[in-house]
Design a binder for these strands. Structure first.
Lengths: 219, 219
DNA sequence: CCTACCGATCGGTAGG
DNA sequence: CCTACCGATCGGTAGG
């Protein structure tokens, strides 16, 4: 028989705690409440969309009272923008890191492209990947100013693809116009957010292979 | 000097009439008010999303009072479902029509694919194409029952692509697994809703060409 | 299809 | 960060 309460379990999984355990005094939380809030918001925004998500939903998911998110964020919109910004920054960081991997510069363009594609799928579909999909699918919920700010980051991200695609185009291995090809390729990947299920079907690896086989004339 | 009012212009463009002209008696409208409502809803759902669109927005766009949409539709959700159903039916009709064009059966698979791709882009981006994008991007706003009903239509639509892709796969002209390839190809096209602008950049024709060049090893 | 309206919900805030 | 709350908005309805 297990005692139903007072398990001294040392908070192994602090996030997503269901059952809303009341906070005890020694759980004061360093100050990463803001991050908890962000993750909860990202998750719900991805699941239900920005407009359909309530600040109360977010508060509850972060184990707070309804008014508390506004202690950390000025508004619901500020929460959305913060989610998107974090999404773009992580995507940019990851993409830059792979492009600076030792040996990357010496790879043939097809290999470089494979690495980029794999990184993009990981950012989109890997563990903890709520931020970038929200960024991709909730852009219309942003006011013009923030929309423009995000646009700069996106343009920077997309620019990382240009050298590789241009190289392949020059070799005749990519016949579509480079910019259109980029839009179509990124689109094929971005849409995977709608159907990819890590628990069944293809793996991330198989997905990457299929995409490469589809986009390139020879592997 | 133009007189600012009383231009006897005979209602050349009945839809999208700004300034909300009060209805006159001889404008009684055959009964296509329902269709006007549907078009307005499709447009706004596409622009702002389902949750962010108000039934009052829709009423105003259709030149009605706030309560009137509910005379034609049981609920806001019923309006959404009707939009999506019409979108899928039109897409299916168009795709079936192209597949029954005389000569289609005799085309080589690459030509058949080109025709399908062109038809898909037209349904997605052509004039009056609000219904299908709403269907694609607002699926999560549907209750499970309707989501499933739509899923059947979508599956039917996707099944139309299988023979062509299988044929190309058999010829070695498509190396990716057929089902993954279909998801990626449709995804590349569906994403175009996010960036395609008929007023600038590539035309629908160029888009189709680029997609074919990207997806196929030889034209 | 309009008028007038209701109940519920939502983003946000004051004051601690 | 919580409590208690407000004003606005929203989907929907009664009754014509």
């Amino acid at each position: 028989m297990q005692p139903a309460a007072a398990l001294p379990e040392p908070e192994t999984a602090p996030k997503r705690a269901r059952g809303r355990p009341r906070k005890t005094v020694d759980e004061r939380d360093d100050g990463n409440r803001r991050q908890t809030l962000l993750a909860a918001a990202a998750h719900l925004f991805r699941l239900k969309g920005f407009a359909a998500t309530t600040t109360r939903d977010i508060a509850a998911a972060a184990d707070m009272q309804s008014g508390s998110p506004f202690y950390h964020f000025k508004s619901k919109g500020a929460l959305l923008f913060a989610v998107m910004e974090e999404g773009m920054h992580s995507a940019l960081a990851r993409q830059r890191a792979t492009a600076q991997t030792p040996g990357y510069a010496d790879m043939p363009p097809s290999q470089q492209l494979r690495v980029l594609v794999g990184a993009h799928f990981a950012v989109l579909l890997g563990p903890g990947s709520d931020f970038v999909p929200v960024m991709l699918y909730e852009a219309r919920s942003l006011p013009p100013r923030q929309h423009k700010a995000l646009g700069l980051l996106i343009a920077e991200y997309e620019s990382l693809w240009l050298p590789v695609l241009t190289a392949r185009h020059a070799r005749g291995e990519l016949r579509a116009p480079v910019r259109l090809a980029r839009l179509l390729i990124l689109g094929a990947m971005n849409w995977s957010v709608q159907w990819f299920d890590p628990k069944k079907g293809a793996s991330l690896q198989e997905l990457t292979d299929a995409a490469m086989a589809l986009f390139l004339k020879e592997s």
